[in-house]
């Protein structure tokens, strides 16, 4: 009797192993769009804890630029910007989740680099923020420029490009470089705040917001140098070409909308009365763009209606009236001397 019980147990284990194997084998998604529409919800991976991008508001809900990008795609695909499920992840796990198909898109601010793009099972969609790595120091150090920081200790977060960029910069300038690297951005900032390091470094737009969390924000100053290019782009899984097209053109629509003055407030009026042919094509009044993306005619309308155009998203989360107070600089439209340009809707 005892023996039979043991066999039953072993058979149970074997059966569950088999079950797990079958479950895992369903990762290969034939068509991401179909999957998302069937589920009725868009799964986005975000890395919380970056003010302005994905940070809990007073009620504990994550808000920010990254969240809006997720909502824009959900609005275009599902007709409702609220049909999102944001999964909080850290940097390495989000790559794994995307590769395994557990999430549909990563909207965290990951820098577009060669080694992350090629051969890693992920594809970038389009640059949504042009950032660069900046540096924060205590005023009392009396440092005016990065070139005076040889031998200083840096507090950094691992898994970002920040670490390697800084090491490269100091190596090329023949300066000694020391760093303490934390798995979490918040811990790195806290350690700097406690005085462990001379310098805190991350992408420039993150520095201003982080400074506000320090004991005495006025004690710290951001150095003028920016040592790297940080093109920030959402990511989708490699091989899902159609899904990538959708994400790419939803983001383009947000930028084109700003160019054409389409806002969250006037999008209805624009759809009914604008006689600009490109606006008509974007908003699905004329043309068959929606059908080619296998989306409903109102895809771009829904996205703009849901989150506003690119400039509106920027102003809401990163602009001068926010805590981040970021200057748009390179993120201006190409018509204003920036790099933001949507390919034509033609």
């Amino acid at each position: 009797m005892k023996r039979t019980a043991r066999y039953h147990r072993i058979i149970g284990i074997a059966a569950s192993t088999l079950f797990a194997a079958v479950t895992f084998s369903q990762n290969a998604v034939a068509d991401r769009l179909e999957e998302v529409q069937k589920a009725g919800i868009l799964h986005c991976a975000v890395v919380p804890g970056v003010p302005g991008y994905a940070f809990p508001d007073a009620s504990g809900k994550l808000v920010g630029f990254d969240i809006e990008l997720c909502r824009a795609v959900a609005a275009a695909v599902l007709g409702d910007a609220d049909k999102v499920k944001t999964t909080k992840m850290n940097l390495p796990t989000s790559f794994g989740a995307l590769q395994a198909g557990e999430v549909d898109i990563i909207t965290h601010r990951f820098t577009w680099t060669f080694s992350r793009d090629v051969g890693t099972g992920m594809n970038y969609t389009r640059v949504m923020v042009w950032d660069g790595q900046g540096f924060l120091v205590r005023k009392s150090l009396g440092v005016k420029s990065l070139t005076e920081l040889g031998g200083a200790t840096f507090c950094l977060a691992s898994g970002s490009t920040t670490e390697a960029n800084a090491a490269d910069y100091f190596r090329t300038h023949n300066m000694d470089f020391k760093s303490v690297t934390f798995s979490d951005m918040k811990a790195a900032a806290q350690a700097y705040n406690a005085g462990r390091c001379d310098v805190y470094s991350t992408d420039k737009f993150g520095l201003g917001a982080r400074r506000l969390t320090f004991d005495d924000p006025s004690e710290h100053v951001i150095l003028p140098e920016v040592i790297s290019k940080e093109p920030i782009s959402p990511m989708v899984a490699h091989g899902e070409d159609h899904w990538r097209d959708i994400a790419f053109w939803v983001f383009n629509a947000l930028i084109a909308a700003e160019e054409h003055g389409i806002t969250q407030a006037n999008v209805d009026q624009m759809r009914s009365s604008s006689n600009n042919p490109e606006i008509q094509r974007i908003l699905g009044v004329t043309g068959k763009f929606a059908a080619k993306l296998k989306l409903s005619d109102s895809w771009a309308y829904d996205a703009i209606k849901g989150v506003g155009n690119y400039g509106e998203i920027w102003d809401r989360h990163l602009g001068p009236n926010t805590k981040i107070g970021a200057d748009r600089g390179l993120n201006n439209l190409w018509t204003n001397g920036g790099l933001m340009m949507s390919p034509p809707f033609r």
């Binding site: 940097l91 390495p92 790559f95 794994g96 590769q99 080694s115 992350r116 051969g119 890693t120 099972g121 992920m122 691992s158 898994g159 970002s160 670490e163 390697a164 690297t181 798995s183």
Partner: peptide, 11 residues
């Protein structure tokens, strides 16, 4: 788990 994984993606 940190830098190497994020830089290479060889999970």
């Amino acid at each position: 788990g940190g830098s190497i994984q994020a830089q290479t993606g060889q999970i």
